[in-house]
């Protein structure tokens, strides 16, 4: 039987969403693994870029942060934040962002700011960074989550980054012209959003995971009627992940997905 970590399964499941020609915005951790895997395995003509301004780096080693020197080497262009955001929202480009979050709701809105009261939080997190911005401007967002009830919640403690907002047409009504939550990839499976209601539903459960386990680990009701079992990673995919994408095994072997808190 093939052995693989949660991070490897998640990176591959997310990588499959990327198509040739996509411009991929990568964050820290498993999102970095997924973006690199997407380019090396599924969509060689996708371009990875970072909010810090690095565009299409060679990524011979996996970066540990979006400002890592490894996002500045072998690039087509090194620039800065303003330039990077002119790419995220560019009308000619199909941009897909990989994000992580501490909490998510049924419409794919994300919290990376705090748990508890904003002014006196039980736990304070890093904050938006560029997440709120790419959630507003990108063509689509794929979010990595640890699948736990306390993270899949009815109501976010703080709405940092807008997904489908309140569902239906509400995102457009806010004045956001495109984008929205495309998918959520967890350590248990893959979820997408209903075309009209914009509510989250289960599309895939990972091998060894039951639908019941996912329902139990989700703090709001989800439709599971369309769910199928995901395919295991192939030895070839894992080999590329381990030998080319993350040869030092800095993220491949970690158990938790980003963000770790």
């Amino acid at each position: 039987m093939i052995q693989y970590s949660d991070n490897e399964m998640m990176a591959l499941a997310a990588g499959r969403f990327i198509k040739d020609g996509d411009i991929v915005f990568a964050g820290t951790g498993v999102s970095m693994l997924a973006a690199t895997a997407a380019k090396r395995i599924f969509a060689p003509k996708a371009v990875i870029f970072f909010e810090t301004g690095g565009i299409d780096p060679s990524l011979d080693e996996i970066p540990m942060a979006v400002a890592d020197l490894r996002v500045m080497t072998g690039t087509s262009l090194n620039s800065g934040l303003i330039e990077a955001f002119s790419i995220v929202g560019h009308r000619k480009l199909h941009t897909v962002a990989f994000l992580g979050a501490a909490q998510i709701d049924r419409y794919g809105n994300l919290n990376t700011t705090c748990i508890g009261d904003y002014f006196k939080p039980r736990t304070r997190f890093s904050g938006s960074g560029g997440a709120c911005d790419v959630a507003a401007y990108a063509s689509g967002v794929i979010t990595f989550m640890q699948h736990e009830k306390r993270r899949f919640v009815e109501k976010l403690d703080y709405l940092t980054s807008v997904g489908w907002y309140k569902g239906g047409n509400s995102r457009k009504e806010l004045g956001l012209r495109r984008g929205g939550a495309l998918a959520v990839v967890t350590n248990l499976g893959v979820l997408r959003f209903h075309e009209e209601t914009k509510e989250m539903y289960l599309t895939e459960y990972f091998p060894g995971v039951t639908v019941e386990k996912i329902v139990e680990s989700t703090g709001f009701p989800i439709d599971t009627s369309m769910a199928v079992e995901a395919e295991s990673p192939t030895p070839g995919e894992l080999q590329i992940l381990r030998e080319e994408v993350d040869p030092q095994r800095l993220i491949c072997q970690a158990i938790l997905a980003a963000p770790q808190r």
Binding site: Y118, A136, L159, T160, V162, R171, R177
Partner: peptide, 9 residues
């Protein structure tokens, strides 16, 4: 900017 619309920011 459009950034922040709908957010708790």
């Amino acid at each position: 900017t459009k950034s922040g619309l709908g957010s708790d920011l």
